[in-house]
């Protein structure tokens, strides 16, 4: 379990990093925390010809309050965001979701943007970003573009990022004062979720619900609270069969039926 050979580069600036991407394209991979990438490389399931280590680029280490969004730079670790003093006030959903991400030890190194880039269908940060309708900031030598979360993650581990682009930051909309809840079911503590559910209450009658683990990417839907039961039933039956070793499609649907009302109730209670 040793990685294949690769070139290593540790640029000092974003410009240097994107120049390398322009030169190497798809063959190169960004290394930030490496908590998913290095495991895949040790198993020889990923095979980049170059790793571009961005962890020390000072411009990427920011958590910035932009008013209605919070921007988190690509070098910010999950535990750093979790320890950000304004987190509970400005991004309560993230405060609820981040403790579910891996373990203390992996959050120490794993980055917020790395999790978005990896785009695992059951992972918590992409689900939160999608539920909040945040966005992803991409940079290449050609310039910068901002992609909405719903357009960014396309399918299981597939995103709209082009080979010559890197994620420099993600932007989470501030949702101060709104009721939120996040729950997930995993086989073991810290495992990838069988199902993860995020909820944000929208006024009196609506809620935004995000569901991970039921398809190749998170599903986000606005639901009418009065119709809760039928809305959830429609969601549960609406998914295509999604099955793996740990959970059958039927089990996933039933957990969704059981869990979604609890998460929504918790979000409502927190809003009150």
């Amino acid at each position: 379990m040793k990685p294949r050979p690769f070139d290593y580069a540790r640029p000092d600036t974003i410009d240097e990093a994107v120049a390398l991407l322009a030169e190497r394209g798809d063959e190169a991979r960004i290394l930030a925390g490496g908590q998913s990438l290095m495991a895949m490389m040790n198993l020889r399931l990923a095979d980049p010809s170059m790793l571009i280590d961005i962890a020390r680029i000072a411009e990427l280490g920011h958590i910035r309050d932009l008013g209605d969004t919070i921007e988190v730079g690509a070098a910010v670790t999950q535990n750093r965001l979790l320890a950000w003093p304004d987190l509970t006030a400005k991004l309560p959903l993230l405060a609820a979701a981040l403790p579910f991400v891996g373990h203390f030890q992996t959050r120490n190194k794993g980055t917020v943007c790395g999790s978005i880039a990896h785009a695992d269908p059951s992972s918590e940060i992409p689900l939160s970003l999608a539920t909040l309708e945040g966005s992803v900031v991409l940079r290449s030598t050609g310039g910068e573009r901002v992609v909405a979360a719903k357009d960014f993650q396309i399918d299981m581990m597939t995103t709209a990022r082009r080979g010559d682009e890197m994620i420099t930051a993600v932007r989470f909309p501030v949702h101060t004062g709104r009721g939120v809840a996040f729950r997930e079911v995993a086989r073991r503590h810290g495992d990838f979720a069988i199902i993860a559910i995020a909820a944000v209450i929208e006024g009196k009658d609506f809620a935004q619900i995000g569901i991970g683990g039921m398809a190749g990417k998170p599903l986000v839907q606005r639901i009418v609270m009065k119709e809760l039961k039928s809305e959830i039933e429609a969601l549960a039956t609406g998914f295509e069969d999604y099955e793996d070793l740990h959970a059958s499609a039927a089990l996933r649907r039933d957990i969704l039926r059981n869990l979604a009302p609890l998460v929504l109730a918790e979000a409502q209670a927190c809003a009150a």
Binding site: Y8, G34, Q35, M38, A39, L51, D53, T106, N108, K109
Partner: peptide, 12 residues
């Protein structure tokens, strides 16, 4: 900071 050294390159 506690990290997994198997997921870390010596270069890092």
């Amino acid at each position: 900071t506690a990290v997994r050294s198997c997921l870390t390159l010596a270069m890092q």
